[in-house]
């Protein structure tokens, strides 16, 4: 799999580290609701379609990225900086 880093251009996936599902929203840290935290930690929808993921270009420019990837075909439709994604409210 090739990920096109916005800085570095197309690079092999082994230069990157997967950092998890980017579609989750962390509950309010003050919350003590067990079901909410349980859902945040364990529930994954695992859709056989386009999905958003955090990746780190650790073997490169060290930028955190959000990759939109179709899990069934590995086709990547977009790669953006995680900071921009977060500042845009996760969209």
């Amino acid at each position: 799999m090739i990920i096109k880093c916005p800085y570095c251009g197309p690079r092999d996936v082994i230069e990157f580290t997967y950092q998890g599902d980017a579609t989750r929203t962390r509950p309010n840290p003050a919350s003590t609701d067990q079901d909410t935290w349980n859902a945040y930690v364990y529930d994954r929808s695992n859709p056989a379609k386009s999905h958003r993921e955090f990746w780190l270009h650790g073997g490169g420019c060290r930028q955190h990225l959000v990759v939109t990837r179709d899990i069934s075909t590995h086709i990547i439709s977009s790669v953006v900086y995680a900071r921009d994604y977060i500042h845009a409210g996760g969209k």
Binding site: C8, R11, E15, G58, G59, G60, C61, R62
Partner: peptide, 10 residues
Amino acid sequence: ASRTVLGKIE
């Protein structure tokens, strides 16, 4: 020049 990987190291 570039940071990259060689086998299992950076």
